[in-house]
Design a protein around this nucleic acid. Structure first.
Lengths: 190, 190, 190, 190
DNA sequence: GATGAATGAGATTTCATTCAT
DNA sequence: CATGAATGAAATCTCATTCAT
């Protein structure tokens, strides 16, 4: 059944993803995890801590993978495409975590928000550097600022939680490829 | 200073946009509006009602404008471009309303959610029909499903609330054009 | 039966006097006052606020009376004697308030502590100035610093809560006169 | 570093003196002592036990010393003076213990309270017997009941915790002498 | 039309203590 | 001897909503 902290994280992830951080009571989390509130506060300092933990784990994984993909030695268009597919696939494969991540950024406690923003920015900038690399190489057009393009793309990714259903006809891989195609398409020089 | 209901809607819009529906107390709203709780419950049945009121108004405006733009008689690519610019511009020009709209869909009461989903879907479908029209005409490529493309684009639009700052260097119009260019770019046949 | 805030103050005074601030639950206070917790938080911002309210009221009364007595035109020894009697008598006549005041100074919230310390110091200093006036006039001996003497006397007064019983044989007036006699005795020049 | 129980008593003494019994969590005590909760409950039955242990030790020492001083063969005024100095000096020299003793009498568990009250009363009575001895001998005036005088003096002593600062200009010995002078002064026959 | 006192349910968090290891 | 995970009861406080006036 996993350790108590694992069960708590699991329960919180599912509930936060479903209802949003503010709509979930600590009591619901511990009930679903099968432990008592005292146990939760033994392992986590607060409800915020739980969110912070969930929030960070997917971002860390994705950052690591982006690092690897971006540092590859293929053409920049291929690397960007692979990175775009990857962020979609890992988001869908960890859909509850991703939904929490997409929805609850603003609910993080002040103190944790800064640290998280830094990590997010790092991810954003690594991604943007790929776009800029392509622009500098003349492979991508530069009529739209790279920064804005990246916001545009991540907006689309964040929105996955609002429409994508795991039970639907499209696999994670397929959505990933479509998203990547749309991104590359909009960057392709005419 | 406006009527009491107007002041209430204004206060609620600003606060919901800033902190999210669940983080705003009714007391804060009435304080900011300069009225009492009794007055609020005189005009609105509940806190949910306030959200509902705000939620719908921007969507109604945008739907109306989309209708007009889509029914124009220019080339489909031009109409889609204009529609894309428009949704961004109107979102930025009513930024607080838009933020509420982007963030708080899931907080609507069950009963209101359905009605809203219908309106949203209508908007989505009108937009999609433009994409499909272009695909049918052979102007846009159809390797990516029109439905997914529209989700992709609206994801980007919804994300505006997370990164766009009215005080920044980009005007609403500029962002709108960039967004539209990215959309059209990704649809352009190679 | 008095207004709700009055009943709350009354209940809190009795309970704080009996068991000490930290040993009293808000629930007990509202039960004794016959209202709900919500009502309490409607009138008082916190449990601390309640203490603050109680704490200040006796001090204000005593400060006012000391002012009057000290400003009288009798001999300094007579005025000091009257002041000493008065602080004992008013403390015993408002015994619950006095006990709260004596016991719970350290439980006041940080923010309120400063304000209260100022008021207390003012009282202390007015009292001390009487002692100094007598020393300057050669009526009281000055081998013991006035400051220390005042601490000594107020220590005795604060201790009333630990031993004096209203049901005992000594009236407030009698205790007051004894205390004043002890004070004056220790100041009398040999 | 001392044994584990010693470290626990030391930590508890400091914390109780600083914040009061009810404001100190067992976790804080064991943290400061550098041990775990299990260890604490190995040596002490409860948090109350810790208080009880601290509470008694200073009283025992002071009782013993009072016994010796009172049983001396000097004049009664000298013995009372010495006793008064001594209680102040030992209180200041064990200031944390004394503060706990002064503040936390009411926090003792019912069962322990009785035992403690007996010891306190014994101390009080021994002290009072000195006063009475002087009154019987005609050295002290008897216009104020001995009992009340002793309460008065111990009130002043208990109050030390509220105003005396070890870093101040007065040494323990000086304060002791001043306090004793005030006591003797108020007893001196005119 | 509007007030604001009052409710009552429920929120998060704390904490002394126990107990299997 | 000692650990530290886990409990469970209780603590303070919040808040949308109602209702007599």
């Amino acid at each position: 059944m996993g350790t108590v902290p694992e069960r708590l994280i699991g329960a919180a992830t599912r509930l936060f993803a479903d209802k949003g951080f503010d709509r979930v009571a600590v009591q619901e989390i511990v009930d679903l995890a099968g432990v008592t509130k005292g146990a939760m506060y033994h392992y986590f300092g607060s409800k915020d801590d739980l969110l912070h933990e969930i929030y960070g784990s997917l971002l860390r994984v994705q950052t690591e993978r982006l690092e690897l993909i971006a540092a590859g030695d293929g053409a920049v268009a291929d690397r960007l495409h692979a990175a775009a597919v990857d962020v979609v696939v890992t988001s869908v494969e960890n859909f509850d975590q991703a939904k929490v991540y997409f929805r609850s950024a603003d609910q993080l406690a002040e103190s944790q928000r800064l640290a998280m923003r830094l990590e997010r920015r790092k991810y954003h900038e690594r991604f943007r550097s790929l776009v800029e690399e392509g622009q500098d190489a003349g492979v991508f057009r530069d009529t739209v600022p790279a920064d804005l393009t990246v916001h545009y793309f991540f907006g689309a990714v964040h929105h996955l939680g609002s429409w994508y259903r795991e039970s639907g006809t499209l696999s994670a891989e397929e959505v990933g490829r479509h998203y990547a195609d749309l991104l590359l398409g909009s960057l392709r020089d005419q």
